[in-house]
């Protein structure tokens, strides 16, 4: 299980990376943390002729807070995010989701941008970033463009990134006051990809009702799946057990996951409802502290 030969390129700057991508096109593959790409290369399921390593590219690893909003460089390591007091304070959903991404040695290398660009439908980070209304910045030969996470993911392992673009930044808007979040998943073993997972963001308005609400699932479709009808069901109400149960039912009726080796479609649909109810209950209880 050894990778096929490739040419190794390590650009120092983003423009250099972009121009390498532009020059080599589909023959080249960007290497971020490598925790998904390198296994595929070792199995020769991926055989890029050229590997463009972003690990030596300047200016891609940072966490910045601007008026409560967060800007995260694409090459920021998952472990760095997980331990960042800024992230923990502003966006506790991320560390909660990150703790479920593989294992510590995976998160030492894995990057947020790499996880989003790889777009595994069972992965936690795409769902979390979508639930946080994240904006993803891509840099290419034509400059930068920013697109919402919800339209970034196009299919299984497919994103809106053009072949000559680098995912350079993730921006997360400030969460409203009294926001509670929860990432919950069902996996066979700790650190496995989720059979089903959900990222929930809910805010408590001053009148005690739920304002902003997001429910985004992983493992139930080709991309992270947002269930807007469930959000509408909680938003504007004072959610209680009956509402949470109604959300469960709605989620179960709405989602149309596929089955695979690890779980059937029926299982995923049912359990998506369960994790939605549980995560929503927890997230709502956390709005008291937000």
């Amino acid at each position: 299980m050894k990778p096929a030969p490739f040419e190794y390129l390590a650009p120092r700057t983003v423009p250099e990376a972009v121009s390498l991508l532009a020059r080599h096109g589909e023959e080249a593959k960007l290497l971020a943390g490598g925790q998904s790409l390198v296994p595929l290369m070792n199995m020769r399921l991926a055989r890029p002729r050229r590997v463009i390593d972003l690990n030596r590219t300047q200016g891609l690893a940072y966490i910045r807070e601007v008026n409560g909003a967060l800007r995260i460089g694409g090459m920021t390591r998952q472990a760095t995010l997980e331990r960042s007091p800024v992230i923990g304070g502003r966006c506790p959903l991320l560390p909660e989701a990150l703790a479920l991404v593989g294992h510590p040695a995976i998160r030492s290398r894995g990057t947020i941008g790499g996880s989003l660009a790889h777009a595994d439908p069972a992965a936690e980070l795409p769902a979390a970033i979508a639930a946080l209304d994240g904006q993803i910045t891509a840099t290419g030969p034509r400059g930068e463009r920013t697109l919402p996470a919800t339209s970034f993911f196009l299919g299984v392992l497919t994103t809106a990134l053009a072949p000559d673009e680098v995912l350079t930044e993730i921006a997360l808007p400030a969460l409203p006051p009294r926001t509670g979040t929860c990432f919950l998943e069902v996996a066979r073993r700790h650190g496995d990809f989720a059979l089903v997972g959900v990222a929930v963001v809910v805010s408590r308005r001053s009148d005690g009702a739920c304002g902003h609400a997001r429910l985004v699932f992983c493992g139930v479709g080709p991309t992270p799946v947002r269930v807007a009808r469930a959000e509408a069901l909680v938003s504007g109400r004072r959610p209680d057990a009956a509402v949470f149960a109604a959300v469960e039912g709605l989620v179960r009726e709405t989602l149309q996951p596929d089955g695979d080796l690890h779980a059937s479609a029926d299982y995923r649909r049912e359990v998506a409802g369960v994790v939605a109810r549980r995560a929503l209950t927890t997230a709502w209880s956390r709005t008291n502290h937000g």
Binding site: Y8, A10, G34, Q35, V38, D53, A105, I106, S108
Partner: peptide, 19 residues
């Protein structure tokens, strides 16, 4: 294959030596 890279644990099978 876990080793420490600049102090952090990593999978040495998922890293190229050039890196």
């Amino acid at each position: 294959c876990t080793v420490l890279l600049d102090g952090d644990p990593v999978r040495s099978c998922l890293l190229f030596a050039v890196q």
